[in-house]
């Protein structure tokens, strides 16, 4: 079955992102795939390329990127939730007069409508909240 995962939890603040990753990694072994991971609410912080955990803790931003490499899933970030929390790509930073950005491939900024579209085209939708 195709799964959409929704992540509301910021990295390292709650278990949400870690649990979502573990769930996503377990799916192929049971014959399922992750089609989309959608980051909303504080979950958008997972997409920041500036995440720099201590070396003995999992690097969540890189872990999501590896998930895309291994499973080919989309990593979608709600643009409205991200911008107001200071997470944006080069184009949005320029549009708003900023000089720096902290989001890039393989994460994509998108609208929340895409969340509902992803859910409707998947067999299962699972939410990971703090």
């Amino acid at each position: 079955m195709k799964y959409t995962l929704i992540v509301y939890g910021a990295p390292y603040s709650s278990q949400a992102a870690h649990s979502a990753l573990r769930f996503a990694r377990a799916l192929p072994g049971l014959g399922h795939t992750v089609a989309t991971v959608f980051f909303y609410h504080d979950g958008v912080y997972n997409a920041s390329t500036l995440i720099t955990p201590p070396q003995d803790e999992p690097h969540l931003n890189q872990a999501w990127a590896e998930l895309k490499t291994t499973q080919g899933c989309e990593l979608l970030v709600c643009v409205a939730a991200a911008l107001k929390r200071g997470v944006m790509n080069d184009a949005e930073a320029r549009r708003h007069g900023g000089e720096v950005h902290n989001l890039g491939e393989p994460f994509e900024l998108t609208g929340v409508g895409q969340l509902l579209a992803s859910a409707q085209s998947s067999d299962r939708t699972v939410t990971f909240a703090p």
């Binding site: 909303y40 609410h41 929340v112 409508g113 969340l115 509902l116 579209a117």
Partner: peptide, 14 residues
């Protein structure tokens, strides 16, 4: 944010 998601879905004809 949940109500916003509902409104966006409605606006997109879902």
């Amino acid at each position: 944010e949940g109500i916003e998601a509902a409104l966006v879905g409605g606006a997109m004809g879902m």
